[in-house]
Structures are given as C-alpha cells and as structure tokens.
C-alpha cells in the first residue's frame, strides 16, 4: 500500500516537472505577445503590465491570416485524406501480397524516407509548371501526397502484418473479396495506425514552407507557414509583432489539437499494436 502511494507521488512529481517544461515556453510566447517591446526585455516572464494588442492588430492588417488558414486547411485536409486512402490500400497489398514484386515495392516506398525532398525541387517545379499549377494551392497537394506515401506505407504495412491471420481467413471463408476485406475488416482495425500516420503528416504539411516558397508567388495562394515565415522575417526585430505572428501560427492548431486530443489518444490506443 505504501509502495503504491509512493509510486503515485513519484508519477505526479515527474509529470508536473515535465508540465512546467512544456508550458513555460508557451507561456513566454503568449504573455510577451501582449507586451510592448521594452517590457519584454525588462520583464520577460511576468504578466503584461502595459497590456497591448498592437502586435496582433498590426500583424492581422499586414497579412491575410483568414485566407492563409483557409488555404492551409484545404491543402492539409485534402492531402491527408488522399494519403490515408491510397496509402492504406497500398499498405494492405504490401502486407498481404506475398511476392517478390511486393517486397521490392515495400523497400522502394520506404526509400523515399531517406532522401531530402529538397533535392528534387527543380524537377518538381518543372513538373508543376508543365501541369500549369504554379501559383495555386493545388500545386502542393500532389507533392504532399507523394511525400506522405513512404511513412504511410511503412507504418500501415507494419501494422497490418501484426494483425492476426485468423481475422482475414474468417472473412475469406465468408466469400468476401479483397476489397471487402480491406474496407470492412482492415480499415476499421487500422484506426490507431491511421491516426499515427495522419498526425505525422499533418504536422509536416501544415508547417512546410519550402514548397509554398518556391511554387507560390501569389498572395492569394499563401499558406500559414509561408505567410508566417515572411511576416516573421519582416518583424524579426520587432518582438511584440514577431511573437504575435508566432502565436497566430501556433494557436489554431493548438486549439484544434486540444479539442481532438481525447479522440486522437483514444484512437491511437484503442486498437493498439499487439505485442
């Protein structure tokens, strides 16, 4: 009994220390974005004494954040949907099709994890221009979907391989086609693995500013990451505004995450990768 209490206390201590380490930087970000520049340096960690919204007002006027968010949302959601859909189909085939071809393709897919994607920039740009997609948000989606394939096939294939064979056999005995097995048996079971892949890619896609930077010159097609990096460059010595820009970049995703966190963690741990 004593031992359990001691363990519990230790749990709280460890987790509380980590909570402070996680929250302190976020606290710094948010409180300082409401302070005038001088106060940031005089008192970098206290609550604002001369509360100001100047940073936000100025930054909101300079950038079109509403537009950036819409663009980022469209790009992220469409890319993620496609990644999960075609990625899981491919993973199912890679896991269950026993042949040399599928072994080779598996390695071929994950090879994409190992080369910096920037290397292919020029070729990709020529391709985007040939498809006449430059300066639109549509230029980003095929690139992001392709970028998502290695991690999707890697994680999902590993997951399907861990599933017990009996599940598939039972469905097959009932005369289900591969497509039915995939859509009725595998997809529902794969929820946690899909969540992992979604989260991995979502963060990469939402925060990528390299491809928007080279593909897009039009203001109307800017994403949050690109808009933020440009505004951040513009205000890098004006800390109130820089912090306002960074807060505006961080907060929406943060709120979205906190709202969905329960679902996400549940989804991840519900099926679980069986040991």
């Amino acid at each position: 009994m004593l031992r359990t209490k001691f363990n519990r206390a230790l749990t709280y201590i460890v987790l509380t220390v980590w909570t402070i380490i996680v929250l302190f930087p976020l606290w710094t970000l948010i409180v300082n974005s409401f302070k005038p520049q001088n106060e940031i340096f005089a008192d970098p960690f206290g609550l604002p004494k001369n509360f100001t919204l100047d940073g936000y007002i100025e930054v909101w006027k300079a950038g079109h954040f509403g537009l950036y968010f819409t663009n980022s949302l469209i790009v992220t959601i469409l890319s993620l949907t496609l990644i999960l859909f075609i990625g899981s189909m491919a993973a199912y085939a890679l896991a269950k099709w026993k042949s040399r071809v599928s072994n080779f393709l598996y390695v071929f897919f994950i090879a994409g994890l190992m080369i910096p994607i920037r290397l292919g920039t020029i070729d990709l740009m020529r391709l985007i221009i040939a498809l006449n997609l430059q300066n639109t948000i549509w230029s980003l989606i095929p690139v992001y979907v392709a970028m998502g394939m290695p991690i999707a096939t890697f994680v999902l294939t590993a997951f399907i391989k861990e599933l017990p064979n009996e599940m598939f056999d039972a469905a097959k005995v009932d005369g289900a086609s591969e497509w039915q097995v995939y859509s009725r048996v595998v997809l529902p079971l794969m929820r946690p693995a899909l969540a992992t892949v979604a989260i991995f890619n979502m963060i990469k896609i939402w925060n990528d500013f390299w491809f928007p930077l080279v593909f897009i010159r039009q203001e109307s097609a800017r994403t949050v990451a690109l808009g933020v990096s440009l505004l951040f460059g513009q205000y890098h010595t004006d800390w109130t505004r820089a912090l306002a820009v960074l807060s505006l970049a961080a907060i929406p995703l943060l709120i979205l995450y906190i709202l969905l966190a329960r679902e996400f963690i549940k989804g991840l741990t519900a099926g679980a990768i069986k040991g």
């Binding site: 496609l82 189909m89 042949s99 095929p142």
Partner: peptide, 21 residues
C-alpha cells in the same frame, strides 16, 4: 487485384517523388 490496390499510391509516388528524386 493487388496491382489495382497499389496503383494509385505507386503512380503519385513515382511521378511526384521517386522520379524527381
């Protein structure tokens, strides 16, 4: 069947990633 399962992913990956890389 398996090829059809693989095809969409393979096409996108080949054209927009593996090829250029």
């Amino acid at each position: 069947t398996w090829v059809l399962f693989l095809l969409p992913a393979l096409l996108v990956y080949l054209v927009f990633m593996a090829g250029p890389l």
